[in-house]
């Protein structure tokens, strides 16, 4: 199963895509993914229920979050009410160690995203803060990467022994599915996604032009 683990909808301040249009696009353009995870910035979308859309289009739609730490942005999979109560998702000054600790306590997974990016990526902060404890997974394919950002991310993952995931980081409809993560089995909900990530059997894939 292939899931785009990093996408934003109009629920994010800089997101311009409606979830229904993501679904339509995936089908109309035969994008080779089975679903996507909505990782809205600095929040978890408790309100939206995409189960009808998922059924209509035969696409898996899951929800997660993208939070902000001193090491840059971090995807959080497996968000629960208890996890939301444990730290302020809206803060732009979270401590990565606190996010990881909370995720571990509540059965979630934290994964720094676009770690090769200046300012908002983890690698840019290693010299200042050192190698953080507890990171196991980082995003090594990001559909919005420029220059050599993905190469920096992959080199860092290799050097530090991290596993890699992929996500499009789509903010507009036509960018969905540019990068994704392939899992060996089916995933139907957030709990199964967390279990699959913890099983550590996945690979990052890219469908960007010239790289597929």
């Amino acid at each position: 199963m292939i899931l785009d683990l990093h996408a934003h909808s109009i629920k994010s301040d800089d997101g311009r895509a409606k979830v229904q249009n993501y679904c339509q696009w995936i089908k109309a353009r035969s994008i080779p993914i089975d679903g996507f995870v909505l990782t809205e910035h600095r929040q978890f979308d408790n309100e939206s229920d995409y189960s009808d859309l998922a059924a209509e289009f035969g696409v898996t739609i899951l929800k997660a979050s993208e939070v902000e730490t001193e090491y840059g942005h971090v995807l959080v999979f497996g968000v629960t009410p208890a996890l939301q109560a444990s730290f302020d998702f809206g803060s732009i000054n979270l401590a990565l160690k606190d996010v990881i600790k909370a995720c571990n306590a509540h059965g979630a997974v934290a994964a720094p995203c676009h770690p090769g990016r200046k300012r908002v990526g983890m690698s840019a902060h290693l010299e200042e803060y050192g190698v953080p404890q507890g990171v196991r997974i980082v995003e090594v394919f990001n559909g919005g990467s420029r220059d050599n950002e993905d190469e920096v991310a992959q080199r860092m993952a290799t050097d530090l022994g991290y596993l890699g995931i992929g996500g499009s980081d789509a903010h507009i409809v036509s960018h969905i599915g540019r990068c994704a993560t392939r899992f060996p089995g089916s995933i139907h909900n957030e709990a199964e996604l967390v279990a699959a990530l913890k099983a550590e059997q996945f690979e990052a894939v890219t469908f960007r032009e010239g790289e597929a």
Partner: peptide, 8 residues
């Protein structure tokens, strides 16, 4: 390089 500079 096919890198996105502006989207909208």
């Amino acid at each position: 390089a096919n890198e996105t500079r502006v989207f909208g």
